[in-house]
Nucleic acid binder design. Structure first.
Lengths: 124, 124
DNA sequence: GCCTTGGATCGAAAAACGTCAACATAGAGG
DNA sequence: CCTCTATGTTGACGTTTTTCGATCCAAGGC
């Protein structure tokens, strides 16, 4: 349930040194766009933050996530799948329930990528 | 050309303390999703990195961006508009040409939001 | 005034996406 | 084995996104 998705962050953790360090080539852009696209939906962002709020090593059962939305269970399942395919979260079944947790390395990679090299916070 | 978009980052720079600090409410999620969605396209990521590569205060003429893609000029113009509406870039017309630059504060906001609070880099 | 050139805007077509109802699957407990 | 509950999967539908050609606007040069 968590094999092929993990490879995504495994092989590319160091692929993109930074947004501004050099123009991205097509492959880098396509790979990063997949992850940002996963973040580009309000439901998925809320799901991710609900899971991440459990802290390092924390887990959340799907049965806690689904009732927080006015959406059907299959829809939530679909969004969780997209987050997982993006390498942002992973999951494990334990008995009847499935638990999800965040993969912090994936988030860090994006944060490093976005961090402006010499940003002068003031907006002039 | 750059009024209403700037308000987006102006009023919410401090809205979202961090992904993991607390579950996002619907408004926060919707607002952030708009920005991440803008980053969720390979063409826009490449455009942004091409502009950002000019460094702090750097500008790029559209006439330098368009020929780098196998896409029509209206399509590039459309993507630049989405990046601008997301508050990530801004532009100004000077004479015949239009120049774009990055708004570093917007990128920093996302980076801060994504930075895991106590990430243990190792993926275990 | 009239061209020419750089960009934005306007439909329209195709593809991708979000959503649901229906169904399938995996364990738990009889 | 059968049933019940918790999730994932499938197929369809309406909406949004991406892309283009055609057109329009702004500025410069004649």
């Amino acid at each position: 349930m968590s094999k092929q998705e993990l490879e995504v962050i495994g092989q590319d953790t160091a692929c993109c040194p930074g947004l501004a360090s050099a123009p991205l080539d097509e492959d880098q852009a396509a790979e990063l766009a997949k992850v940002f696209k996963a973040l580009g939906d309000p439901v998925r962002l809320r799901l991710l933050s609900m899971i991440a709020s459990r802290g390092e090593g924390g887990e959340v059962c799907v049965c806690e996530l689904t009732p927080a939305f006015d959406l059907s269970q299959p829809t939530i399942s679909h969004h969780l799948k997209l987050l997982r395919q993006a390498g942002l979260i992973d999951c494990e079944r334990r008995g009847t329930w499935v638990y999800y947790w965040v993969l912090p390395a994936a988030l860090d990679r994006l944060a490093v990528f976005l961090k402006a090299p010499t940003a002068v916070e003031a907006l002039a």
